[in-house]
C-alpha cells in the first residue's frame, strides 16, 4: 500500500474555518496537499448527501470545518452540523466504513495553526486507514437536482 496518497475533501464554513485556512495560507504554514477545500456559507449547509457523495466519488476522508460552539455566524448552524456528523459516523460504521474518515472540527478565523494541524493529522490517519474500498457498496447514485 506504500505510496498511497488519500484524497480528503474539506467543507469549510465561510466565516471561520475558510478564513482560518486563508490565514494559514497567508502565514505560509506548510501542510500535506491531500485536503481539498470546498467553501460553504456555514457548516450547517453540509447536507449528509454531500458527505456520501464525496465518498462515492472517491474521497478517502471528509472534513467538516465550522465555527466554535457559540460562534457560528448564523447562531447555531454548527450544532446542526455536529448532530448530522455524529449521525453519519454511526451510519458509516454500519456500512463498514471507519468513522474516522469523517471528521468535524471547530476552527476559528484566527486558528491557522489549528487548521494546519488538523489537515496534517487527518491526512496521516486516513493514510494509515488506506484507500476507502467502496466496491462493497452498490454504486451509489445520488439524485441530482
Amino acid at each position: 500500500m506504500s505510496g498511497f496518497e488519500p484524497k480528503i475533501l474539506a467543507f469549510l464554513c465561510n466565516w471561520c474555518s475558510y478564513s482560518g485556512a486563508d490565514l494559514a495560507g497567508v502565514s505560509r504554514l506548510k501542510m500535506p496537499p491531500n485536503v481539498r477545500p470546498i467553501r460553504v456559507m456555514c457548516s450547517g449547509r453540509v447536507d449528509p448527501a454531500f458527505v456520501l457523495k464525496a465518498f462515492a466519488s472517491g474521497a478517502d476522508g471528509v472534513l467538516i470545518g465550522g465555527c466554535h460552539p457559540g460562534d457560528c455566524h448564523y447562531a447555531e448552524g454548527n450544532y446542526k452540523a455536529l448532530r448530522r456528523a455524529l449521525f453519519l459516523q454511526r451510519m458509516l460504521e454500519l456500512q463498514g466504513v471507519d468513522p474516522r474518515r469523517l471528521r468535524i472540527e471547530w476552527i476559528s478565523a484566527s486558528e491557522a495553526d489549528r487548521y494546519a494541524g488538523v489537515v496534517a493529522d487527518m491526512t496521516e490517519i486516513v493514510r494509515a486507514l488506506g484507500p476507502l474500498n467502496l466496491d462493497r457498496w452498490e454504486k451509489v447514485r445520488i439524485r441530482k437536482r
Binding site: C42, G44, V46, G77
Partner: peptide, 8 residues
Amino acid sequence: KGCGTCVA
C-alpha cells in the same frame, strides 16, 4: 440570511 441549514 442564506446559511443553508434548512437546505441541508
